[in-house]
Amino acid sequence: MSTEIQEIRLNLGHIELAAHLFGPADGLPVIALHGWLDNANSFIRLAPKLRGLRILALDLAGHGHSEHRPPGAGYALWDYAHDVLRVAEQMGWARFALLGHSLGAIISVVLAGALPERVTHLALIDGVIPPTSGPQDAAERMGMALQAQLNLDSKRKAVHPTQERAVEARMKGLVAVSREAAELLGQRGLMPVPGGYTWRSDSRLTLPSPTRLSEAQALSFVKRIACPAHLIVAADGMLARHGALLEQLPFVHEQLPGGHHLHLNDESGATLVADCFNRFFGIS
């Protein structure tokens, strides 16, 4: 496919989102959703290697160059799914494929399970269902989340003296990435502020969720998926140690070498993922 990247903005009425467009105008419509605290550059290596696809790679709300949600609002999975539907409406896509990594994969599963008639293909990278918990934890989790919201008012985002220091911090984050991956994410995720640079992402993204689904509820979305689905599991990623969950999935999954960001960390990882998904989409 073409390596040309088009930058666009989409006004959804309730929020404005930024995105990259890759590929031929007549290609199969695909909406690509990145992971937590990442941005559309998550697909900057992978998208040009995928054939015959019209890929719209979003900056999810609160990430990259997209707007943050208004004061008092949060970042629930269902709100992200609503955003994706609004994007599809703006693009004129009655049916579309979803390509998701991590959080983006979870959003993809939620949307494909909730409205299976809208989704043609589901291509997932190291993510399936949201973290789950039992009903006995509900009150404690709610209290923790409410207190964290109050505490956020007194916190300030980290400011790094140089872009290099900001990149190094991202390399050592909760999910480690390669230097090249951190630099690519930084191209879209860093902004200058007094004293240096900070990440654009909304601080509210770090707040714990006030509620969680049970495992049965989460898997109900998986069970309603009606389209072909293919999950790539990173050998050194987040899903490889959840064999019991993988065995419950009704769709194809395969393991590839690399970490959680295997599609972004280096060109060889991106090529391996692209080879799998080109076979999956079956477009020559």
Rank of each mutant, 00 (worst) to 15 (best):
R212G: 06
L246N: 02
V87K: 00
D38W: 00
H63A: 08
F221R: 00
E168D: 14
L190C: 09
F280H: 12
H20F: 13
R141I: 03
Q136T: 06
V193R: 02
A40M: 14
K49Q: 14
P228C: 13
E215A: 09
H230F: 13
K223N: 12
R165M: 10
V30P: 02
R86E: 11
R118P: 10
F96R: 09
G100R: 11
A61P: 04
A40E: 10
I283G: 11
R54I: 11
S133F: 06
A81C: 13
A270W: 01
P228H: 12
N265S: 10
D202K: 03
G196E: 03
S108K: 05
A182Y: 03
L12V: 12
A76T: 09
L219M: 11
I8N: 01
H263N: 07
A61T: 08
L249W: 03
S203K: 00
H14N: 11
A105R: 08
I232E: 00
L185C: 06
T162L: 11
M191N: 00
S42E: 10
D38F: 02
V87M: 07
L213Q: 13
R204F: 11
G258Q: 04
H261Y: 09
R188N: 13
A244R: 03
L10M: 06
H160A: 05
R179T: 03
S284D: 08
A176Y: 01
S133P: 04
R118I: 13
E7Y: 02
A114W: 08
E267D: 15
K155W: 08
R141T: 02
E140M: 09
P192E: 15
S268H: 04
E4C: 14
F277N: 09
Q187A: 07
A114S: 12
D275W: 04
S220H: 07
H253I: 12
R95Q: 12
V119P: 05
R9N: 09
